[in-house]
Amino acid sequence: MFGGGGFDPQKMQQMMDQFGIDIDELDAEEVIIRTADEELVFTDAEVQRMDAQGQETYQVIGTPETREAGEASAVESGDGDSGGNGGIPDADVEIVANRAGVSEDDAREALEEEDGNLAAAVERLE
């Protein structure tokens, strides 16, 4: 369909326009995919939204951190175990510490200063 001569972005754009396909980059701070067993948390993901004749499709590119299902939703509702330190879940502290390459104490402090926002805490520490 595209031939063996390589990728031609202009031709690709013309084909997408012809078929009514529109792609937008989203400035996502965090993407969470919840399954019955786990949550995949993308804090530094590239997200694209493709609209093809009214049908929207999202593409998430990145490496997720994994946590057990229910950790974030329990904390959001105020019913969950926050790890005992300032309402910040231990799983979130671990994610920020690993992503930013800092100690868990520094990660917890950044999360508290950013009201639990993982992306903002990582950005603060980098």
Rank of each mutant, 00 (worst) to 15 (best):
K11F: 01
Y58A: 05
E104D: 08
E109G: 07
S77K: 10
T35H: 07
G70A: 01
V60K: 04
D17I: 13
I33D: 02
V102Y: 01
V47C: 06
E29P: 15
E113V: 07
D22W: 02
G6N: 06
K11T: 05
E104P: 11
G70H: 03
M16I: 08
A28Q: 04
G87Q: 09
G54F: 07
G86K: 08
E113N: 11
G20A: 06
V96C: 06
T63Q: 15
E109S: 12
V93D: 09
N117A: 10
R49Y: 02
E39S: 14
A72G: 04
I95V: 04
L125W: 00
A110S: 09
A74K: 08
A52S: 11
G78D: 00
E38P: 00
I61H: 05
Q59G: 14
F2L: 12
E46K: 12
T35S: 13
A100S: 07
E46L: 12
Q48M: 14
D106G: 04
P64L: 11
D105T: 13
D51G: 05
V60A: 05
E94C: 02
V47H: 06
L40E: 05
E112T: 09
S77M: 13
E94T: 08
E29T: 09
I32E: 13
E71L: 09
E76P: 13
E123Q: 05
D44M: 06
F19G: 07
G20L: 10
R34W: 01
A119N: 12
D92V: 07
E71G: 02
P64S: 11
P89I: 14
M15V: 15
A119C: 09
M16P: 14
A36R: 11
A72P: 03
E25A: 10
V102Q: 06
M1C: 09
Q55I: 15
Q14Y: 04
E126L: 01
G101P: 09
R49L: 14
E94P: 04
G6H: 08
E25Y: 10
Q13Y: 07
A119P: 15
A91Q: 06
L111I: 01
I88T: 11
E123V: 01
T66S: 10
G84I: 14
L26C: 10
A119W: 03
V122M: 01
E123N: 03
P64D: 08
G86V: 11
E104C: 03
T43N: 12
G78Y: 01
E30K: 10
L118W: 00
R108M: 05
G4H: 08
V47L: 07
R34I: 02
V31I: 11
R49H: 03
G78K: 00
E25T: 13
R34V: 04
Q18R: 08
L125V: 05
E38N: 09
E113T: 08
D79M: 15
